[in-house]
């Protein structure tokens, strides 16, 4: 088995997969590589990947894939360790790149959710915020999505192995809809859709099955969320629904966070 057993003279680059606050869906994408999985396991030495094996090889690592957001003091310490032991650090998924769905706590008063959910929140030792990895350490490459796209993950790994720059679009989901021939749900049906401000990468999955884009890949390079919000409001979308639209997996991504806050009901100063 190609496992994390140190083999003398193994010249393959080492790959480590790290988990922070996350659901594991993104790192499982690695195991979902199916046909390419054996080739991948042959091309790299998988040194640390707890979804695959409990065995672990000590660093340093050529490539670290980092999943999850930073939500505890321990996370904040551990991510610095990962950074120090990694030549190339790649964040994978909305949690690592934008703080994830747990980033909703950033919009609430400290401890509010914890008190609502847990009988004894005093046992929790978490930070008031869920923050992306790049707010803590230098990130070499970010792979967006909730979850990430299998093809993009393979693209990053193969590009790193080949020593070339990976092809990762920064443009809107709309271009992928047009490329695959999906008729625009917003223009032809008035369906609220984040596609015009969302980064491509998923292949425009949701509009192809008649659902507006949820924004899983976070803001596109050039996102003009304000202009889209004006259109959605003029279509009759209620303000609270608009705020919820921008507050999902990438609620903490700056463009989405700014737009969500702009439409929040103003609380009277207490």
């Amino acid at each position: 088995m190609t496992g994390p057993e140190p083999v003398p003279g193994d010249a393959r680059p080492s790959l480590a997969v790290w988990k922070f606050a996350s659901c594991d869906g993104c790192q499982l994408t690695l195991l979902d590589c199916e046909e390419e999985l054996l080739a991948l396991a042959g091309a790299v030495r998988i040194a640390h990947f707890t979804e695959m094996s409990r065995a672990s090889i000590a660093g340093p690592y050529d490539v670290s894939l980092v999943e999850g957001s930073i939500t505890t003091e321990e996370d904040a310490r551990r991510i610095r360790e990962v950074r120090e032991s990694s030549r190339t650090l790649v964040t994978i998924g909305a949690c690592a790149t934008a703080g994830g769905i747990q980033g909703l706590r950033n919009f609430a008063a400290s401890g509010e959710y914890a008190r609502a959910v847990y009988a004894h929140p005093e046992y929790l030792a978490s930070l008031d915020t869920s923050t992306p990895v790049e707010q803590h350490v230098h990130v070499d490459l970010a792979l967006h999505g909730c979850p990430i796209d299998r093809g993009q993950l393979l693209e990053v790994v193969t590009a790193l192995l080949a020593g070339r720059r990976p092809v990762l679009p920064g443009h809107s989901v709309c271009e992928q809809c047009k490329a695959r021939g999906t008729v625009c749900l917003l223009v032809a049906g008035g369906t609220p859709c984040l596609g015009p401000v969302t980064r491509a990468g998923c292949g425009a999955l949701c509009p192809a099955v008649d659902r507006g884009c949820f924004g899983c890949f976070g803001p596109a390079d050039t996102a003009n969320t304000e202009a889209l919000a004006r259109r959605l409001i003029s279509d009759g979308l209620a303000t609270d629904a608009l705020v919820r639209l921008f507050r999902t997996f990438n609620a903490g991504a700056p463009a989405f966070e700014k737009e969500g806050r702009a439409h929040e009901p103003r609380h009277p100063a207490s």
Binding site: C174, K178, P196, V197, A220, N224
Partner: peptide, 13 residues
């Protein structure tokens, strides 16, 4: 520019 989404739809259609 205040109105434009930079989404590229015009160029695609």
């Amino acid at each position: 520019a205040q109105r434009c989404l930079s989404c590229g739809n015009c160029t695609m259609v």
